[in-house]
Structure formats: structure tokens, C-alpha cells
Design a protein around this nucleic acid. Structure first.
Length: 198
DNA sequence: CTTCCGATCTTCT
DNA sequence: GAAGATCGGAAGC
């Protein structure tokens, strides 16, 4: 997607990302997945956002230019990836929650499986599973996803009509920011992550 | 399908 | 010192 795509309202960007492709690596290391579920975070005014209490060492990328990846470590063992939106200085980002792996499915499976077989629909079903399938870790924090030569990039895909987009409360967010209906997913898609009580 | 629990460690108060 | 934008396994329906 072009850089201008990210220079809009964070919810507009989130909706527009459904159906888009996220790609990592190249050649034998290529993995591509189509986004089926995302979540919007609105910076300093959003109680559920990492940027709610201002700029810190971890969330610095959120305050930077749009079209970059904001990758953070959580729960002592998981990486999660966001795409930063504009304008610069406003700390808005879209969390990539789930996707359907299209290309590089063998590599994605090898990265995800730890002894037990995993169904195709579960390969990138959830934000931390998605980063494992793509091979994304903290070293990719801040990379430009609009650059074709980047290790992580986003490409235009199927446009999802409004009628096929489900809107609901965010997952895993507690407190005042939780009920905010800023979670977007493709209606009925089997790769959309399940509900987990807070 | 749902609920409960432990794992594991960085970040910020 | 506590909480966290989670996951996988086990157990219950």
C-alpha cells in the first residue's frame, strides 16, 4: 500500500487493511497472509493504547512517521505487530490480529508447529501467532512497510465490502478502553481469533 | 465451543 | 512490585 494510505483516520485505515496482504522475507523465505482481523488504537486519548500515558521507550515508534511497523514484546514471550498511522506525532496504530496464510504456508507451519499439527486456519489466528508465522520479532520495529525492499511490507489485496465487515469490542483490553468498538474483522472468516474474556 | 490456569519477563509506577 | 493489545493445554458442556 502507498504511504498516503496510512495518512488517514486510524479506523479508516483499519477497515481498509482487511483483505490486504502482509508479506515477509523473499524467495524461499517468503510468507504472505491476507488480513482478516485488525484493531485500531488512538494514542493519547485512548485508555486502551500503549501511548495513553505519553511517549515512552517502548511506544516511541507509534509517535513516528506513518507506514512503519510498531513491534512490541508482551507477556514475557510474545511479539505483536502494528502499522503506524498519521499524522506524525499522534501515536495511532492498527494491531494486526489475524490473517489467512496464502503463500509460504510450509515455512509458516514450520515456524508455528512445536510437535503437534496445526490446522491451516490456525497458523495466523491471533496477534502473536501471526508474528510467528511471518517471522516478525523486535528487530523489525520501525521498518517501512511501504518499501518494496523491506523485510516486512503490505500490499493491496481484495477490497472487502462494508457489509462483510464485522465491528466489535477490542480483545484483551481491560478498563475504560475495552468496550470501544474498534475491532474489525471479515464476517464469518474461520481465521478470525476467538473471544477471550478479560 | 467455553472456561480456567500457568508460563515468562519487559515496561512503567 | 504489578500488570500486560497472549497462547496452549486441560477439563467441562
Amino acid at each position: 500500500m502507498p504511504a498516503a494510505f496510512y495518512e488517514r483516520d486510524v479506523r479508516t485505515v483499519a477497515r481498509g487493511l482487511l483483505g490486504a496482504w502482509v508479506a515477509s522475507g523473499e524467495g524461499d523465505g517468503l510468507v504472505e497472509l491476507q488480513l482478516t482481523e485488525v484493531e485500531a488504537y488512538a494514542g493519547e486519548t485512548d485508555p486502551g493504547s500503549h501511548a495513553y500515558r505519553g511517549r515512552t521507550r517502548r511506544n516511541a515508534t507509534m509517535f513516528g512517521p506513518p507506514g512503519r511497523a510498531y513491534v512490541y514484546f508482551t507477556y514475557g514471550m510474545h511479539w505483536c505487530a502494528n502499522l503506524v498511522c498519521a499524522p506524525e506525532g499522534t501515536a495511532r496504530a492498527v494491531l494486526l490480529r489475524a490473517g489467512a496464510v496464502g503463500r509460504g504456508i510450509e515455512l509458516a507451519r514450520a515456524r508455528r508447529e512445536r510437535g503437534v499439527a496445526i490446522r491451516d486456519r490456525d497458523l495466523a489466528r491471533g496477534p502473536a501467532r501471526l508474528t510467528v508465522a511471518l517471522g516478525v520479532t523486535g528487530t523489525l520495529d520501525g521498518v517501512d512497510v511501504t518499501d518494496p525492499g523491506s523485510p516486512l511490507r503490505v500490499l493491496a489485496g481484495t477490497r472487502v465490502p462494508r457489509a462483510r465487515v464485522a465491528v466489535g469490542p477490542r480483545v484483551g483490553v481491560r478498563g475504560a478502553g475495552a468496550p470501544t468498538p474498534w475491532r474489525f474483522s471479515i464476517l464469518g472468516d474461520p481465521t478470525v481469533s476467538g473471544y477471550r474474556p478479560g
